[in-house]
């Protein structure tokens, strides 16, 4: 096993070359934030593609309006509120980190996780309700879109919950508090996607 011997080299144990942390930002944007923005750009294209496809189909099928009447608008509206609230608590978490209050930050993140959990429970309730009525993902193209789009979004919510919990654990130990901002940016994105999905799938279809 090679050993770094020449003078002046960073003292890194050869057996476990640890990853180097990104050293510096050549632009004014922190590297982590830049990475998150590019990640979200790729997500925007995935959801953007899906939404565009749906809209194109929807324009060709005015009769889908009647199907959309079977979605649970009230549940969807409550869920919109729930997600918006969770975004608010993420902003509070970020604020608290900025002010150095990691305890409050960790508390606010827990509130976001709770709200995200409520969102998923309501969503699951909606799915169950629709499926027992016979509106399964294969009951027609509208329902295929409905389940595919909200399902993909729900997976993102789930991923977000895991990410927030992971960041929260580190923050409680005082590590990487700047990641609260990054996971927050992601969480707002998930929120924004829902704000597109809710009117498209629940409301605009009533015509």
């Amino acid at each position: 096993m090679s050993t770094p011997t020449s003078p002046g080299r960073p003292a890194v144990p050869a057996s476990s070359p640890a990853p180097y942390a990104a050293p510096r930002a050549a632009t004014s944007v922190p590297t982590g934030r830049l990475g998150i923005w590019w990640f979200l750009a790729s997500e925007v294209v995935i959801f953007g593609g899906l939404v565009t496809i749906y809209v194109l189909f929807r324009l060709r099928h005015p009769e889908w309006g009647k199907l959309a009447a079977h979605t649970m608008t009230v549940a969807g509206a409550v869920n919109t509120l729930v997600l918006l609230t969770s975004s608010l608590t993420m902003v509070l978490a970020h604020e608290s980190v900025e002010r150095g209050n990691l305890r409050l930050a960790s508390q606010a993140m827990l509130q976001s996780v709770f709200a995200g959990g409520v969102f998923l429970v309501i969503k699951a309730f909606e799915y169950t309700h629709e499926i027992v009525q016979g509106f399964t993902p294969v009951a027609g193209l509208f329902w295929s879109f409905y389940f595919a789009m909200t399902g993909l979004h729900a997976l993102h919510v789930l991923g977000g919950l895991v990410a927030i919990l992971a960041v929260r654990r580190a923050v409680q130990r005082g590590e990487n508090p700047h990641r609260v901002e990054y996971v927050g940016i992601y969480w707002h994105f998930v929120d924004v996607v829902w704000i597109f999905l809710f009117p498209l799938l629940y409301l605009a279809s009533r015509g």
Binding site: A41, S42, E43, V45, I46, F47, G49, I53, L152
Partner: peptide, 14 residues
Amino acid sequence: FLFSVGPLVAGAVM
């Protein structure tokens, strides 16, 4: 790549 692949990822899932 980043800006072109998204719709295909969605398309592949579909």
